[in-house]
Nucleic acid binder design. Sequence first.
DNA 1: ATAAAGTATAAACCATACTTCATACTTTGT
DNA 2: ACAAAGTATGAAGTATGGTTTATACTTTAT
Lengths: 120, 120
Amino acid sequence: MLINELSKRTGVPIPTLRYYENYGLFKGMTDGKIKTNNYKDYDESIVEKIEMIKGAKEAGFTLSEIKNLIDSWFNKRLSKEKKITVVYSKITEIDNKIRQLNKVRKLLSECIVDIEKGNC
Amino acid sequence: MLINELSKRTGVPIPTLRYYENYGLFKGMTDGKIKTNNYKDYDESIVEKIEMIKGAKEAGFTLSEIKNLIDSWFNKRLSKEKKITVVYSKITEIDNKIRQLNKVRKLLSECIVDIEKGNC
DNA sequence: ATAAAGTATAAACCATACTTCATACTTTGT
DNA sequence: ACAAAGTATGAAGTATGGTTTATACTTTAT
């Protein structure tokens, strides 16, 4: 599919997709032998990749962290153990973030009680 | 306490504290009647406020969101109901974030299995 | 066939959240 | 007393994650 469809499928604006591609998060194919243009073609797997990127971003990861994750994910030369280490460390980060969010959530709940009591 | 101590107590660098104060997240006191200088004094409640700011930031909230929260928190003119609405909407956002994080966490766990199997 | 719409690339621009710098005054240690 | 360290303020600089603009080529619709 072309970038327009990719944008519609994922809900990510075209300039952002180009920015991501340029950043190295994924890569469209240009087949110089077949096509007269240099339009890039994106396949289904890239839609999935972008969904992953969106999820990770909403979860608060930076593009650079996401790039590291994707790189180790798809790097064939990396050993199983290395890959697993990278992914586990992200899982640990996620657990920390969830813990942090629950802490703030608790603070806010307590605040509701205070407001209802008329304090603060 | 002066800004140096505040920085040590909270672990937030002095320039960042000044940036936050300038942004309107809190305010130190300068008592022109007593002091010969214009050094600002920060009390215990500001330490707490900054801990809240740190928590909210780690949870992924922007300074502007945090400012809104603090403003409604300490705005005496706001009705109980308005305050509660603001705080509840933040709690809902936190719940969404936690859900999102769990989604990514699940994806990564599945990935571990895939890596162990030798796929991807 | 030709105007409108789509695509690619590079460069400039923007907002957020800081950090660094320059300047000037105040306090503290010896 | 006076150098070193702390404080305040304003302005400029930086990094991240985009968005916008300009230019040029390609495809599509009428």
